[in-house]
Nucleic acid binder design. Structure first.
Length: 868
RNA sequence: GGGCGUGUAGUUCAGUUGGCUAGAACGUUCGGAUCACACCCGAAAGGUCACAGGUUCAAGUCCUGUCACGCCCACCA
């Protein structure tokens, strides 16, 4: 079974074991990183030591972030994995930068979502047909049972992902103190006159049997029909909803429409109902659409409702709240579902010869966000909120007091804020915060407690879930915590809830704390599958992040996600991404093993050589870039920088060079910085290696964030770069000429510069090129057929037998390439306008380039003459 | 109907204030059990930068228009 590096008796013993017999006291050492043995152990350790617990009395600068609370009974999705990885990166980096960090977690009761699920389950179990069968109290008991059973799963999953939340402060929107705050807010806004009750046309969800806010309605393009129905000799109306005709109270035409002017004020007989209804004139009618005649159904269409108010028409309700037809619809239709009724009405019209024609028609139909059934416009008494602090909230984003990333979302925000409409707060549900209003006859009382006296009954409805969520950034905190950590610093969320949640939190923040709730909002992309489809349960295209963690490790999943999560762009996710992440972690693991092995038998340090200079120089650059990109929330750029540096620069070049002459001090210095830079992205493996490498005796979480400092002498870095160019050239020669990698060959290097430098690096060159010998000779003249390649600092010759024809062809091709470039560059420099008008640096650059190209051309021409 | 975003290699994406032969990763092809790692190493092939105009010495990059896809907003029945 694999054993951790840190468990080995001593570094020396370990290194010895790895080098010679791969075992320590008979135990096999794992070559591959195994996340399972590492992750749970460290998470438990961090928790037990309270590393995530925020201290309000700390003197450090505060950094805070509140989690977008997931549904209490939900399970982790790829969206959560993305969102929470981003938050964890922010939090962990700030801890390393010396901030006192609060990442406040919690869950949302998610009124309609949770209630729907519980109801459905109970129905499936045969316990009930409808929630009314149980009654309010019994039903709520069942929901709480459900919450106890399924709540907290997502919290465990967030821990698996490595989230460094302060779990001692975990909140739930239906906790006692939080609920009290929600009700207090309602009463306060009622007293201030922002909340009122009114009979209005609302979005009704017949499946959930509740009203919804405009934001909870999703418009979906739907393939439907436009039925043309004869209402009288001269009148044909077109409708997408024939069943509503049973509740028609008028036909409307435009007042100036000459075709119908003579009918205005006359009466028609409503088909199927045999009821007389008037023809009215209203400017809302578009004479160019359809026939120019509109049927008016006051109780089941918003536009018709408003028209009915203007014309004082009666409101005949033909569809009941559960979506079935009422008695008013007539005995033929009473009790039918609204869509069955549609067919029945069409059938009867057809029989009566009143159906003039049917057109295919695509239009947008509102659907319930939660139950996904078509919304029914429904006239009912509901509670509404006129939003407070609208102008303040607009200017907060306008002035940059609150900053959006990516910036463009502020336009969406502005548009909504400037066209803001009152918020329908009441929901005809039981799971949630019950509206703190009592009625007795005509009396209405709003308060935290029931009024004294007999005969008062409380409003049966509960509040919209978002009416509790909008208080999240401050009502989750106690006095001391708020004093230290509010306003919060960053918020990370999806752009799909910019209205539902973000905008409302801003308004609540200004109303109740006189401050913005957060300084920055980072909007993530939406995770899609490789075909660009949104991930959803029903499509079955959403991988379970827990499965991915089991297969690739949390760090692998996290890093793979970060590599492809560009700012504000949707993310096409594929399991391959996690594989890339896992492979990278394994690479890191093995780099550590390499360093461990080098520690045995090598002095702790030696003077810096060229490779040391270069890696330190690149290290400095990567620190700068990672910090700069993270500062502007470009997580994927930071991840890419780390990936390229660690794999490309550190492993491919520096570790390879170390095989010739290791410098333990530099290996450790660079690797220590790597672990710290990588820790926010990959918390588990970095903690494991930080400890097993012995960089510190305590957690990496509070190790200082690396600072860039100028290191590595620039002229040596340039020379080393040229040296690596020779290596690439030599490898190319071997490959192009089909030389077996095991076969040792002789190389001759004819430098055009840096000759002494290259001479000092022959051991390195010989090692990395698997050469029998490497000669550096400014005067080198090839004898016979010697494949060669021109780099910008030298010509590389591979001494040995080759196919002259193939070599000639290759060199000719290269010559052609160079000739083409020379022609282009010459043309550019011959252009008077370019020389005169372009930036002098650009011209200079072109001249230098031309000189270099000509030099290369000469060399190749010289080679070619020898090949003939 | 209005707004926003995206079109670059087979795929997913980089590409700074216009200025190297347009890059990377994955995939593909070729070679390789080398003593950190086959979850690896080395090399190669692969592009009319959606299209059409324009500005400029110079356009993937700036401007105009067109097309395609995606998202958000909007009570034409």
């Amino acid at each position: 079974s694999p054993v951790r590096l840190s468990r080995c008796a001593s570094v020396v013993e370990l290194a010895h074991a790895l080098r010679y017999n791969h075992s320590v006291m008979g135990i096999e050492i794992s070559k591959a990183y195994d996340p399972k043995t590492v992750e749970d152990k460290w998470y438990a350790d961090w928790l037990s030591k309270g590393h995530f617990t925020a201290n309000p009395s700390s003197t450090k600068l505060p950094y805070s972030i509140v989690i977008p609370p997931p549904n209490v009974t939900g399970v982790l999705t790829m969206g959560h994995a993305l969102n929470n990885t981003l938050q964890d990166i922010l939090a962990r980096r700030k801890r390393m930068q010396g901030y006192e960090v609060l990442w406040l977690p919690g869950t949302d009761h998610a009124g309609i979502a949770t209630q729907t699920v519980v109801e459905k389950t109970l129905r499936k179990q045969g316990v009930i047909k409808h929630r009314d069968d149980l009654g309010r109290d019994k039903f709520l008991e069942k929901v709480w049972e459900w919450k106890e059973k399924h709540g907290g799963i997502i919290v465990q999953q967030l821990k698996k992902l490595g989230c460094s939340c302060d779990w001692t402060r975990e909140r739930f929107t239906m906790d006692e103190p939080y609920s009290a705050a929600v009700l207090r807010t309602f009463v306060d806004l009622y007293k201030k006159g922002f909340i009122y009750r009114g009979k209005r046309m609302v979005n009704w969800d017949p499946a959930g049997r509740t009203a919804l806010s405009d934001e909870e309605v999703i418009m979906t393009e739907t393939q439907g029909h436009l039925w043309h129905i004869r209402y009288g000799t001269d009148v044909v109306v077109a409708t997408t909803r024939p069943e509503t005709m049973l509740g028609d109270e008028a036909v409307a035409v435009h007042p100036d429409d000459p075709r119908y002017r003579h009918l205005i004020g006359k009466k028609l007989v409503l088909p199927l109902r045999n009821k007389a209804i008037p023809v009215i004139a209203d400017a809302a009618v578009d004479p160019k659409f359809g026939t120019g005649c509109v049927k008016v159904t006051p109780a089941h269409d918003l536009a018709d409702y408003e028209m009915a108010l203007r014309h004082k028409l009666p409101f005949t309700v033909v569809i009941s709240p559960d979506g079935t037809m009422t008695k008013e619809a007539g005995e033929d239709f009473e009790g039918l579902d609204r869509f069955e009724c549609r067919e029945a009405v069409v059938e009867q019209l057809k029989e009566a010869g009143l159906l003039v024609k049917v057109e295919e028609y695509t239009h947008n139909v509102g659907h319930s966000e939660r139950t996904n059934v078509p919304i029914e416009p429904y006239l009912s008494e509901q509670w509404f909120l006129r939003y407070p602090q609208v102008t303040e909230s607009i200017s907060a984003v306008e002035t940059g007091a609150i900053k959006f990333y990516p910036e463009r979302w502020s336009k969406t925000y502005m548009h909504w804020m400037r066209n803001i409409r009152d918020w329908c707060l009441s929901r005809q549900l039981w799971w949630g915060h019950r509206i703190p209003v009592w009625y007795r006859g005509d009396e209405v009382y709003c308060g935290l407690e029931a009024p004294t006296g007999d005969g008062w009954t409380q409003d049966p409805d509960v509040l919209d879930t978002w009416f509790s969520s909008w208080l999240w950034p401050f009502e989750t905190m106690d006095e001391a915590t708020r004093k230290k950590f509010y306003p919060t610093t960053d918020l990370v969320t999806g752009p799909d809830i910019i209205f539902l949640w973000v905008a409302r939190m801003i308004m609540a923040g200004y109303e109740y704390t006189d401050a913005k709730p957060f300084g920055t909002v980072y909007f993530t992309g939406i995770i899609r599958d490789t075909q660009g489809r949104k991930m959803s349960k029903s499509l079955g295209n959403s991988p379970d992040p827990l499965d991915l963690i089991a297969k690739y490790g949390a760090d692998g999943l996290r890093f793979g996600l970060m590599l492809i999560a560009p700012q504000g762009q949707d993310i096409l996710f594929d399991e391959k991404r996690s594989e890339v992440g896992r492979n990278f972690m394994n690479k890191l693991w093995n780099a550590a093993r390499f360093i461990q092995m080098q520690r045995a038998g090598n002095p702790p340090a030696r003077p810096h050589n060229a490779h040391d200079h270069r890696v330190l120089h690149e290290l400095n650059a990567v620190i700068t870039k990672v910090s700069a990109t993270l500062d502007v929330y470009k997580f994927n750029d930071a991840a890419k920088e780390l990936y390229d540096f660690i794999w490309g620069d550190f492993c491919d070049w520096y570790i390879e060079a170390s095989k010739v002459s290791p410098n333990i001090a530099v290996l450790d210095e660079v690797f220590g910085v790597i672990l710290r830079l990588l820790h926010p992205f990959a918390p588990f493996i970095t903690e494991e290696l930080w400890n097993s490498m012995g960089y510190a005796t305590s957690t990496i979480q509070f190790a200082s964030w690396p600072e860039a400092k100028l290191q590595g002498r620039m002229e040596i870095v340039i020379e080393t770069q040229a040296l690596y160019g020779i290596v690439t050239g030599g490898r190319q020669l071997r490959n192009d000429n089909g030389v077996d990698p095991k076969k040792k060959v002789q190389f001759a290097i004819k430098p055009s510069k840096h000759a002494d430098f290259f001479r000092a690096e022959t051991a390195f060159l010989a090692g990395i090129l698997n050469a029998e010998s490497v000669t550096i000779d400014e005067q080198y003249v090839s004898t016979g057929l010697t494949p060669s390649l021109v780099t910008n600092a030298a010509t590389v010759f591979m001494v040995g037998a080759v196919d002259p024809a193939a070599e000639h062809e290759k060199q000719t091709k290269q010559l052609a390439d160079i000739a083409k470039q020379i022609t282009g560059t010459e043309a550019k420099l011959a252009n008077e306008s370019f020389v005169q008008r372009a930036a002098p640096i650009a011209v200079q650059r072109e001249r230098e380039k031309l000189a270099m190209l000509r030099e290369q051309r000469e060399k190749i021409q010289a080679l070619l003459t020898k090949l003939v």
